[in-house]
C-alpha cells in the first residue's frame, strides 16, 4: 500500500458516495446514466469474486464489500426507487457494443485461462469503458449538473492515481500487471476531455454545458 493507492481508493469511494448522496438528497437521478451504473455493478461483481476464495486484508475485504454494496444501491435507486426521474430517453448508449467485445477480449488476452481470472480480466477491461454511457448521455443533453461533474472528476482522479501507484510499485516492488496498466491508461485517457472541461468551466463556477 502506498499513498497513491490509498488516495486512489478513497477518491473512488468518494465518487461512489457523492453519486449515491446526490440521488438520495435530490430524490432524482436525472442526468445519471443507469447503464453506466449497471456496468459498474457488473464490474465489481465479476472482479471481487475472490472475496469468496481468498482473504487479503480487512481493508481489502471492507472496501470490496462497500463498493459492491454501493453499486447495487445506486442501480436500485435509479431503476426502482427514483425510476420516474430516470433520463431513459437520453441514456441510449448500446452497452452490448461494450460488453460483447470486452468479453471476447477477456477470453483472448488474460493472465490465466481460468474462470475467476477471465472474469477478473473482463472486469478490468469493462471498467475502462464503463463510463462511456455516462459521457454519451452528457454529450446528448449538452450539460451536466455540477455535482455530477464532481462525481466524474473523483472517478477520473482515482484512475490517474492508480497509474502513479503502478509506477511506484514497478520501481519499488518490481510489480506490474500489464492488463491492469493498459486498461488503466485507456480509462484515464477517456477522462482527459472531461478533465479539461472541469478545470476550465466547473472550477471557475460555471455549469458544465457543451456547445450545441
Amino acid at each position: 500500500m502506498n499513498i497513491f493507492r490509498l488516495a486512489g481508493d478513497l477518491s473512488h469511494l468518494a465518487a461512489i458516495i457523492i453519486l449515491l448522496l446526490k440521488i438520495w438528497k435530490t430524490r432524482s437521478c436525472a442526468g445519471i446514466s443507469g447503464k453506466s451504473q449497471i456496468l459498474f455493478a457488473l464490474v465489481f461483481t465479476t472482479r471481487y469474486l475472490d472475496l469468496l476464495t481468498s482473504f487479503i486484508s480487512l481493508y481489502n475485504t471492507f472496501m470490496k464489500v462497500v463498493y459492491i454494496g454501493c453499486a447495487y444501491a445506486t442501480v436500485y435507486l435509479i431503476y426502482m426507487k427514483f425510476k420516474a426521474t430516470y433520463d431513459g430517453n437520453h441514456d441510449t448508449f448500446r452497452v452490448e457494443f461494450l460488453v460483447v467485445p470486452v468479453g471476447g477480449l477477456a477470453f483472448l488476452v488474460n493472465h490465466d485461462f481460468s474462470p475467476l481470472e477471465i472474469l477478473w480480466t473482463f472486469s478490468i477491461y469493462l471498467e475502462s469503458v464503463a463510463i462511456l454511457p455516462q459521457l454519451f448521455l452528457i454529450s446528448k443533453t449538452g450539460e451536466a449538473e455540477t455535482i455530477t461533474t464532481h462525481y466524474l472528476f473523483c472517478l477520473g482522479v482515482y484512475r490517474a492515481l492508480y497509474l502513479f501507484n503502478w509506477i511506484w510499485r514497478f520501481y519499488f516492488e518490481g510489480f506490474f500487471d500489464m492488463i491492469a496498466i493498459v486498461a488503466g491508461v485507456v480509462q484515464t485517457i477517456l477522462y482527459c476531455d472531461f478533465f479539461y472541461l472541469y478545470v476550465t468551466k466547473v472550477l471557475k463556477g460555471k455549469k458544465l454545458s457543451l456547445p450545441a
Binding site: S54, M63, H111, W120, Y162, G174, F176
Partner: peptide, 10 residues
C-alpha cells in the same frame, strides 16, 4: 509478466 496471487488492488 509478474503478479501476486490474490488481488490486493481494488
Amino acid at each position: 509478466c509478474h503478479r501476486t496471487k490474490g488481488k490486493d488492488e481494488l
